[in-house]
């Protein structure tokens, strides 16, 4: 049996300290050890983006990182988006209003990308949004409504800054 390693990290503002086997993927750690099931696993090869989380504010794919590497990390998962219980964040609201999800499997990844993109870019064109989302696959929507939702979310976000 390989030596277990204690991982201390912050997720959605809460501090955790858990043991992990070195080969455990961060996405499994988040889902199975910490029971945060919002982050999905689509491909497990780094292609689909369903497992996207924010790590120190930047999106990364949690199936491509070992849990033990997250020591000291400050992580946000889709559960962390809600400003308070029962309310939707700007990103969630925009996805809902624009019908940007069908089965919803890809949605957590797209929401985390949206959170990052609308805050870290000037107003994006549709072309730019597509370009920045090419690490996220959606098998249902055809992407049109997702691009609508991201544009809408950015408008809403900018409006809160005025």
């Amino acid at each position: 049996m390989t030596r277990m390693v204690t991982v201390n990290l912050k997720i959605n503002g809460k501090q955790y300290s858990e043991e992990a086997e070195p080969r455990l993927l961060l996405v499994h750690f988040i889902r199975d050890a910490l029971k945060l099931k919002g982050t999905h696993i689509g491909c497990d090869t780094g292609h689909c983006g369903a497992c996207t989380i924010l790590w120190d504010g930047k999106p990364v794919k949690s199936c491509q990182i070992l849990a033990v590497q997250a020591e000291g990390a400050n992580i946000m998962t889709v559960e962390g988006l809600e400003p308070e219980d029962g309310k939707l964040s700007i990103e969630q609201e925009s996805f809902r209003e624009n019908f940007a999800q069908q089965c919803g499997y890809c949605t957590p990844g797209f929401l985390m990308m949206t959170r990052y993109l609308i805050r870290n870019n000037e107003e994006m064109t549709r072309e730019e949004i597509r370009e920045k989302l090419h690490g996220n696959y959606c098998m249902c929507t055809g992407y049109q409504q997702i691009v609508d939702a991201v544009q809408d979310a950015q408008r809403k976000y900018f409006a809160t800054k005025k």
């Binding site: 780094g46 983006g49 996207t52 790590w55 930047k58 999106p59 990364v60 794919k61 491509q64 990182i65 990308m113 990052y116 920045k132 090419h134 690490g135 996220n136």
Partner: peptide, 8 residues
Amino acid sequence: ADVQIRNR
């Protein structure tokens, strides 16, 4: 690659 992979 893509935004996420470029971050890592």
